[in-house]
């Protein structure tokens, strides 16, 4: 690596120069349209930290004990005998010890630290990708097996599935799945979105696995069968392990695509990372900052995944 840097020093310098020039160019362009950058608005959508007002649920009397300089323990004794205990900020208190209050009165405020909508969106995107990825892998395994099967029924059905899914846009599939299948079977948005993505990715995973199976030398199946294993036993013990090892890199690519494609489910009002970004923009107008942030967050997800896969590949390649 170091030797390489020395040898190609000039090119590495050029690389850095091009990157810097691109960044500078982008900056200059935004200057031309007079865009005001407010990066400061972004962090609160990762972690929200602030005061949140608390209101009484009914009529009653308050007992207030001071805990320390900043906080007080407020016990709301409602007329119906129930009690609420709140820890409120000293400065925010609207009533004093022994005061009575009525329903809807503001009592004070508490300090909250909450994950922001971007983190929630990120988690939703992760869940979507994880669940649909797992289902896609299962679908893909069966489709891959069906595609190389000698049985015309399995082979035919699998081909039709793959052709239909690969021949139509994912966006359209999501709509059909949500409005038609989802309504008929009464799916939640999240379920509909997850399944639509899984069925989409499953077709591609199936093709990858089919190619992997077909890349295993024919002699392997013959050797296994000549030992008396049946077709399924040979597939499970001999063909699949070799095929799966081979398909790891294209499979990784497919899962990275899946993470990115999951952004399309925001059209059926699932608050994934992309939808979260859109919502933040409507309240902040920090269009550029948010989209760059969203892009960065997707990049973190996909890059982490490629790193994990690379690690697994290295572990795998030890055996040969």
């Amino acid at each position: 690596m170091l030797k390489d840097v020395k040898k190609n020093l000039i090119w590495y310098i050029a690389l850095v120069a091009v990157i810097l020039a691109t960044a500078f160019g982008a900056m200059k362009m935004t200057e031309r349209i007079n865009y005001e950058w407010y990066w400061g608005r972004v962090p609160q959508y990762f972690v929200f930290s602030g005061d949140e007002d608390q209101f009484a649920d009914g009529n009653g009397e308050a007992v207030i004990e001071e805990i320390d300089m900043d906080q007080s323990k407020v016990i709301l004794e409602y007329d119906n005998g129930e009690k609420d205990t709140l820890i409120l900020l000293q400065d925010s208190l609207m009533i004093e010890d022994g005061d009575s209050f009525s329903e809807g009165d503001k009592i004070g405020a508490i300090h909250v630290v909450r994950t922001g909508i971007l983190i929630e969106g990120l988690i939703t995107t992760l869940e979507l990708s994880l669940y649909s990825g797992i289902i896609a892998l299962i679908i893909g395994l069966f489709i891959g097996l069906a595609r190389v099967s000698k049985n015309p029924l399995f082979r035919g059905l699998a081909s039709i599935y793959v052709e239909v899914i690969r021949g139509t846009p994912l966006l359209v599939q999501i709509f059909i799945f949500y409005f038609f299948v989802g309504t008929v079977l009464d799916f939640s948005r999240f379920t509909a979105g997850t399944l639509a993505l899984a069925i989409f990715a499953g077709a591609y995973v199936g093709e990858i696995i089919r190619a992997g199976i077909q890349a295993v030398d024919k002699g392997q199946m013959e050797a296994a069968r000549s030992l008396g294993m049946n077709y399924m036993e040979a597939m499970i013990h001999i063909i699949m392990p070799q095929a799966l090892k081979r398909v790891l890199p294209p499979l990784a690519g497919q899962f990275i695509s899946l993470i990115k494609d999951s952004s399309l489910v925001s059209v059926i009002a699932i608050t994934d990372l992309t939808k979260a970004g859109r919502e933040v923009i409507t309240s902040t107008f920090a269009t550029f900052e948010i989209w760059f942030t969203i892009a960065g967050m997707y990049l973190v997800l996909t890059f982490t995944l490629s790193m994990i896969i690379r690690y697994i590949e290295r572990r795998f390649s030890v055996s040969d």
Binding site: D217, E222, A223, R225, S226, L227, G228, N230, I238, Q242
Partner: peptide
Amino acid sequence: INKIRAEVGMVFQSFNLFPH
């Protein structure tokens, strides 16, 4: 047929050992 094959061993020109 699987029963028969178990009784009939076969050795191939290209070995066909299981590499994994």
